[in-house]
Amino acid sequence: MTKHTQAYVAALSPTQRRIAQLGVIFVPIVTQVTEILRVGSLAFYYAFKKPIRWREVVQQSFFIGNRSLAFVMIVLGFLGMILIFQSGFQAKRIVGDLQGMGALYLQLLFREFAPTVTALMLATRVGTGIAAEIGSMVVTEQVDALRMNNAEPIQYLVVPRLLASIVMTFVLSCVALCVAFGTGMFVANTVFEVNVATFYNTSLLEWGDLIIFSLKALAYGITIPIIASQAGLSAFGGSEGVGTATTMAVVNASLAVTILDFVLSGVGYIFFFS
């Protein structure tokens, strides 16, 4: 707080001061959200404007896929085993019948776990990567150099990452779905002795599940690179600034994924499943 503000706050009554303190919480949140929306809308404006650097889009897609494929597969593989372990023991205790487990599990993977957990992992892997990359470019003045050469940083840096992320989030979510279902099937078969053919049961799948799956993957794929780019572009100072930007990227992106998950799950429930 500067001297000026301190004097102002000191003159307030206790109640007023308490209200003023709310600003300390809300002002940074509001500025950050508006900043993210600004970067997002500019990115969309440039995404529909020529020229788009398609070669860079392909390269970024390769980076995203190459960097996170093993990571997503390991995490989702373990998640699949955990979920079947937990639900298997509970189902055995309460319901006593494990035949319907596979169908329910597949439905839950589509609606919730495959897209969301993949997105959380991409928020950590790709989100920090983008923020660190763009953040280092900001603190070493490379972004200024781009602007001096009339290359708009959002068009030049953010748009290729956005397009690549939209495609790769969907692809990786599909991979994640298969891996998690596979490892789940493995545990169901070895621990609970559920037949593979019984476990692989698509009877509960509806169009709604597919739509929610795609909607979630699309929303996450758009949100993560934009939030991470905004964090990177707002970096200042030296290595400390890059560190702060990357931290900000993971936190904001994971939080955004959770909020979107809540909203889209609610929408899905109201439109398709109730």
Binding site: T124, T128, A132, S136, G241, T247, V250
Partner: peptide, 16 residues
């Protein structure tokens, strides 16, 4: 600065 970014990236991935 590049190294700090890379470290943070590795750290959150390994933690997850």
């Amino acid at each position: 600065a590049v190294g700090v970014g890379r470290s943070v990236n590795n750290s959150v991935v390994a933690s997850a």
